[in-house]
């Protein structure tokens, strides 16, 4: 995995695991690799992996079972919430950038709609 050195590494590790959860590489209830193995796989520090996982346990997206390891939560409502949160984060970014180009809300909706339609045609 390639890291952006400008962004905290623990944050990028969280996003990496979120991505695997969203794309189904890590399904609900799946066991995560051991901390050191994750560190080796991602070429990051063990402590940083621990920090990322610690935060995910706190927010309830993964669950820690003593002596057994870490598992993706089986709480599908929580996963749905996470997905919504990730979508909002991306939308917020796009919205802010379009807003900075002086587009009104209506213009933003219109241009997104137009973009998606045109994109669809190109792919047909």
């Amino acid at each position: 995995m390639q890291f952006d050195d400008k962004v905290p590494i623990y944050y990028q590790i969280k996003n990496h695991i979120y991505h695997e959860m969203m794309t189904g590489q890590l399904v609900a209830g799946a066991k995560l690799p051991a901390v050191r193995q994750l560190a080796v796989d991602l070429t990051v520090n063990v402590n940083t992996v621990q920090r990322a996982l610690g935060e995910m346990i706190q927010e309830g997206t993964i669950e820690s079972q003593r002596g057994k390891g870490n598992f993706v939560t089986t709480d599908t409502t929580r996963i749905a919430q996470l997905k919504e949160q990730l979508v909002v984060e991306q939308l917020e970014r796009v919205y802010q950038q379009l807003h900075a180009l002086n587009l009104s809300d209506d213009e933003i909706i219109a241009s997104l709609k137009q973009y998606i339609e045109q994109r669809g045609q190109q792919h047909d």
């Binding site: 050195d5 400008k6 905290p8 590494i9 623990y10 940083t48």
Partner: peptide, 12 residues
Amino acid sequence: ADSVREEFGVGI
């Protein structure tokens, strides 16, 4: 190291 990224938004 992560405090540098967090506070200044720059790489190490």
